[in-house]
Amino acid sequence: MSLVGYTLAIFVIVAALATAMFRDVLSAIIVFGAYSLGMAILYTLLLAPDVAMTEAAIGAGVTTILLLLTIAKTTRPTTDRLFESIDVPALFVVGAFVVVLGTQVLPEMYAVGDSEAPVWSNPEVTQAYLEQTYEDTGVQNAVTAVLAAYRGFDTFGEAVVVFAAGIATLLVLKREVFA
């Protein structure tokens, strides 16, 4: 990753910290928009433009409006302090978690574009998917075919989870329809 990438990574981490630390929720929502902007550039730099597009559409558009609708329905406490005070035990737990992840998990992961990574060290698997996808599923885009056909049950399960969340929301609100 280039110097631009590292600078952006630091930017995103600082933005996430600021979002978590702000006492005023409206300010937190605005800074969360800045976080989403940094994330979209990072995804693009890591050659995942589809994820970046989703982040752009969700982060810039939907999330802000959903969060605003939420705080419009609730009360916003007025405050004189800018930042939340730090919860030391929680900070300790999170710090320990980060240390374990950084020392145990990160060294095991492959670098971006590493030729030793399973994706590249088993080219016949990739090739088999690219060749058989259209015959198997009739879908021309291999990524779409993997998501919607080969991993169809997984995607179906995700849809069920979203459906269940919607039903639960309606139950909590004691309503029969959305809107």
């Binding site: 409206l26 929502i29 605005i30 928009g33 902007l37 979209a40 693009t44 433009p49 970046a52 597009m53 752009a56 559409a57 810039a60 558009g61 802000t64 409006i65 605003l68 609708l69 419009a72």
Partner: peptide
């Protein structure tokens, strides 16, 4: 493509928050 989507959606957040601060609750 990503830049275009951002250019199209960038104003949404500003408008939503402006409306929210002016009307104290109306977002859409």
């Amino acid at each position: 493509d990503v830049a275009l989507i951002y250019a199209l959606l960038n104003f949404l957040m500003a408008i939503a928050i402006s409306k929210f601060t002016v009307e104290r609750g109306g977002v859409l």
